Amino acid sequence: MQNQASTTSHNPDRIIFTVGYAGHDRDSLLALFKAQGITAVADIRTFKRSSYWTAFDADSFGPFLRENGIAYVFMGDVMGGKPQTPALYPDGQLDYGLMAQTPAFRSGIARLVSGAEKYRICLMCAEKDPLDCHRTLLIAPALKEAGFDLRHLVEGRIESQTETEQRMLQVNGGDVPDLFAAAEPDPDADYKLALARQIKRVAPMADDAIKRR
């Protein structure tokens, strides 16, 4: 991570936090970070500025965090949920599988893994519910593969990634289609189906996500 405040904190538990700033103001979000011992924030929005939540624009919120002893880095260029590459929307909707394989995204994951050796990191996006955000649907699987667990700061409590996935199964449950019924039963079939359904439900469409220049 770059543009960081000086710190000697580290993350022995291999946990990365996430939060959506919707419904917060700067002070309440800062208090939340302090309460959880967060020492670095990775901003994973695609765009540095918001038309509504202007208090969290990168050019002012970043310095605010640093002034309060928390490192800040913008990573929306490699991990943002609305990438500006048309090829990642093959059917008009963002394909998270394709995005997860891009060199840029994989470099972002590697950067988080490296940074977590020194910092207690929180990923920040706008969406309040982690179930409706790419931090759960795109980034969490990659971090889990790297040996990390996620903790979501939401509604005044900490929700584990396991709890988020359980909610996803409840919302998207149903019969597992034949394509998952292999000769050897797949113990993750229900999760894979629920994830695919949730992605279909919330992944952005190209017409809405890509800025027209």
Rank of each mutant, 00 (worst) to 15 (best):
Q161M: 10
I70W: 01
N11R: 08
L123N: 07
G115T: 12
G80R: 08
A182S: 14
V202Q: 05
F47S: 10
E145T: 10
P90E: 04
Y191D: 12
R120C: 10
Q2K: 15
H134Y: 01
K82G: 02
N3D: 13
K128F: 06
A181D: 13
K82T: 03
S50V: 06
D129P: 00
A146L: 05
G92E: 09
V78P: 00
P86V: 10
I38S: 08
P204F: 07
L29E: 06
D57W: 12
G80T: 04
Q161D: 15
D149Q: 15
R111G: 01
V19R: 08
L32G: 01
D95K: 09
I16Y: 07
V176W: 06
G76S: 03
M1S: 14
L169T: 04
A31S: 08
P103L: 11
A5P: 00
I139Y: 04
A183G: 07
F105E: 07
S9G: 07
F56I: 03
G115C: 07
Y119L: 11
Q36V: 00
A182Y: 12
L88N: 08
Q101V: 01
I199E: 05
K144D: 09
D132M: 14
I199K: 14
L30S: 02
D178Y: 09
D129S: 12
D59I: 09
S9A: 15
I158W: 11
M75Q: 08
D27A: 15
K128C: 00
K34S: 05
A183P: 00
C133P: 02
A182C: 09
A42Q: 02
L150H: 06
R157W: 02
V73R: 12
D175V: 15
A203N: 13
A146T: 05
F33T: 02
L137W: 05
D13V: 11
D132C: 13
S28Q: 06
